[in-house]
Simulated scan of single mutants.
Amino acid sequence: MASFDLELVSPEKLLLSRPVEMVVIPAAEGEMGILPGHAPMIVQLRGGVISVTEQGKITERLFVAGGFCEVTPDRVTVLADDATPVTSLSKTEAAARVATAEAAYEAAAASGTPEVRELAMDSLLSARAMAQVAEAA
């Protein structure tokens, strides 16, 4: 089957770099499947799971807290704010992130600018997505 190069990069390191058959990303507009030959685009990511398919089955599932993805017909580059294998997610850590993000959003809602509130809401939604994935894992 045809493949394309996938690179997943976090601020700390290069997490993944290899040919894959398909990847599903959590785009801001919704889940987006990418196959070889996909139209070029740049999309914003929301908190969610990236699923990597190789040899007809999902081989990797990584939670990303957000970021961007560049798609070309023969390469996909994911620039993730934070990436964690789904199997490594902790329910306790996810719950703590939700509590921290809720407090930050309440503070931003009380005295922040619209931009600050939006960033706080993005962080809260990402933390809630992490909690859902950790609960299901």
Rank of each mutant, 00 (worst) to 15 (best):
2 A>V: 03
29 E>I: 06
93 E>R: 15
111 S>E: 12
51 S>R: 15
85 P>L: 05
55 Q>W: 08
74 D>F: 13
1 M>W: 05
49 V>W: 03
67 G>I: 01
42 I>A: 12
69 C>K: 07
16 L>C: 07
78 V>Y: 02
79 L>Q: 09
101 A>W: 00
93 E>Q: 15
104 A>D: 05
54 E>Y: 08
98 V>P: 00
43 V>W: 05
132 Q>W: 11
24 V>T: 14
89 L>Q: 00
42 I>Q: 11
98 V>F: 04
31 E>W: 05
27 A>L: 01
61 R>Q: 14
44 Q>M: 15
13 K>V: 02
132 Q>H: 10
50 I>Q: 08
74 D>V: 10
79 L>D: 07
41 M>N: 03
72 T>L: 15
136 A>V: 14
38 H>Y: 04
62 L>P: 04
96 A>H: 08
123 S>H: 12
107 A>S: 13
46 R>V: 09
4 F>L: 05
40 P>N: 07
94 A>F: 00
136 A>F: 14
22 M>H: 12
8 L>E: 06
2 A>N: 05
71 V>I: 15
28 A>Q: 08
82 D>T: 10
65 A>Q: 03
103 A>V: 12
70 E>Y: 13
93 E>G: 12
17 S>D: 12
28 A>C: 13
98 V>L: 12
73 P>Q: 02
14 L>Y: 11
73 P>C: 03
28 A>R: 11
66 G>V: 06
78 V>M: 02
92 T>W: 06
8 L>C: 07
133 V>K: 10
31 E>N: 13
30 G>N: 10
130 M>L: 07
123 S>T: 15
19 P>E: 11
50 I>G: 01
128 R>V: 03
31 E>I: 02
47 G>A: 02
55 Q>K: 12
22 M>E: 13
76 V>N: 01
122 D>C: 11
130 M>N: 01
41 M>P: 09
49 V>N: 09
80 A>M: 01
64 V>M: 04
20 V>P: 00
27 A>N: 04
89 L>I: 01
104 A>L: 10
48 G>T: 06
45 L>I: 05
8 L>M: 12
101 A>R: 04
62 L>G: 06
126 S>G: 13
23 V>P: 07
58 I>K: 15
23 V>G: 02
89 L>K: 05
10 S>H: 11
9 V>G: 09
90 S>A: 11
45 L>C: 11
47 G>M: 02
58 I>T: 15
95 A>R: 09
103 A>N: 15
35 L>V: 02
1 M>K: 12
3 S>W: 07
10 S>P: 06
81 D>E: 13
108 A>M: 02
107 A>P: 03
112 G>Y: 00
